[in-house]
Design a protein around this nucleic acid. Structure first.
Lengths: 298, 298
DNA sequence: AGCATGAACTTTATCCATAAAAAACAACTT
DNA sequence: AAGTTGTTTTTTATGGATAAAGTTCATGCT
């Protein structure tokens, strides 16, 4: 059966809106809620129905009002708000990055399905999606081959990344003075400086900034293939560093400083300086990844 | 039910081997056939069984020999030797490139499934696979968006292609003198010259050469992401030109000449000359594609 | 007319079933 | 011991079913 994660997530969302006093007095219409929650009206209605049923809200002559205050165990557990496909992704990534899965291992759909508690279809769809990351390969009628999260992989990844980023940074710097992206860049710089001040406690926030920064650079002259490639990078890094936290603070602090230099280079519009800052930053990111790969081997 | 296309294809293969006298006297062992056909022994046995049943071969005290001569209608029809997934691919590409599918159209899995006569699962898997080509986009719980085989698409595609190819051509030229790839390049050049002589009748053969050439260039310093990207290109071109044959002969002849120039540039090891030939060739390929896109609009 | 709710219909996400194909195991032969 | 064939088990490719979520149609209210 299809999971009802969309509903549960929407429900939690409304509950927390009630809790935070974002919905005072008469509740918005179904259509308005639909817009705010980004789900269909069908789902909105289901949420409302349950809210009434639990007496969190009450409906009197067509007007819906908050009734009871929301408490902690009105919320559905987080795990129930994530669709199956996402769970498969997480479990697979853990299996791959954490387990002792060696390069050359073959991947068995049925076995993973059993292990993850889902139908084989879900596994297969995930693997198809995942195959574009270059880490697995399909052999028809036979199964999938895990090629390994190896040094080669990282080298090839960074080679492309470097090409793309140099290209995008260059084009970014060539934008007209009145482009709104310059203002965005300035704002991002401030965010960097702010984070740097609080780095001791807030170092986790870096990955959000990192993402924003690299995506911003691509915005100047969009290319879907570059965007897609950046998705690969984010994905890989997200999971890799999620299970590999050594030196996180230090790593992020260094990257933050590199970003600032890089941003200033962009602001200078000086090609040579830009290329240099870009190269330096990527070289450092690469070195960090390589180091952690070697650590994994042991 | 799973199709038995693997079996049928293997059967046809063996039948044509018998026909062509590639299997004289005692037939090879099951294991040997398995190796030659690239299928499992289970399938080999099924083929043999059917061959016996149809009296194409006979088995006398453990020895299998040809019995009857193979005739035209011993073969299974071609359509039955292609797996469902491939059919879906073909039908989808036709639907997309030939039909009046406009950018922005949304793609309905169920409707396609009905139209193509397959289960929705197959459509979905295809779409997931296809999504990396940058022509469609998934909107969760809702469906897929067809972004269109547009001018933008072609521009973005060629931008990346140019970056990759310049990089690969450069690295190719830097290979040591004793690399075996130089010999391969020379052989390919001869094949080009040969084809040029027969271009009037054999112009269809160009696409095979084109593929070999571009893949050869990448071989010097492999990068999986570049290979993958080249898969996208081949795929797109394959289908696009399959339904768009205008000027095919002339187009191929021009490309053949460009390739020869390009190969000679590589052989010269002269960077400037290489970059120039590479650019010229890609610019021309791009112009051809753009022209045919505009033709489509009308 | 324009927006709200209610109800019916359609499509997606997900599981399950099964024949075909592959792989593993077993017994036999040289 | 290594290669054959026979048999059994496992896995993949494909179809089908269904609850959840999305969309459309209908009705009613300002």
């Amino acid at each position: 059966m299809r999971t009802d994660t969309v509903y549960k997530k929407a429900f939690n969302r409304v509950a927390s809106m009630l809790h935070d006093g974002e919905l005072v007095g008469e509740l918005p219409s179904e259509n308005e809620l639909k817009r705010r929650l980004g789900v269909s009206r069908t789902t909105v209605r289901k949420v409302l129905q349950e809210l009434v049923h639990r007496k969190l809200i009450a409906e009197r002559n067509g007007i819906r009002m908050a009734e009871r205050t929301v408490d902690e165990n009105d919320y559905y557990p987080d795990a129930e708000t994530t669709p199956r496909a996402k769970h498969v992704e997480q479990q697979f990534m853990e299996w791959m990055l954490r387990g002792d899965t060696r390069p050359g291992t073959s991947i068995n759909e049925l076995e993973l399905a059993r292990q993850f508690g889902v139908a084989t279809n879900g596994i297969r769809e995930f693997l198809i999606r995942f195959s574009r990351f270059g880490l697995i390969e399909k052999r028809p009628n036979t199964g999938w081959l895990f090629k390994g999260f190896t040094e080669d992989f990282a080298l090839e990844l960074f080679e492309i990344r470097m090409m793309f980023e140099l290209r995008s940074a260059h084009l970014f710097s060539q934008q007209p003075e009145n482009s709104p992206l310059w203002a965005k860049l300035a704002a991002l710089k401030i965010a960097h400086v702010d984070l740097l001040k609080r780095i001791e406690s807030r170092f986790h926030d870096f990955s959000g900034l990192d993402n924003r920064f690299h995506r911003l650079i691509n915005e100047a002259s969009p290319n879907r293939f570059i965007d897609d490639f950046y998705d690969i990078i984010s994905f890989i890094f997200h999971y890799h560093y999620q299970w590999n936290k050594q030196d996180e603070k230090q790593r992020n602090k260094a990257a933050l400083l590199e970003h600032i230099t890089y941003i200033e280079a962009l602001e200078s519009r000086n090609s040579v300086r830009i290329a240099k800052a870009c190269r330096a930053h990527l070289a450092s990111a690469k070195a960090t990844l390589m180091r952690s790969l070697i650590a994994l081997e042991e």
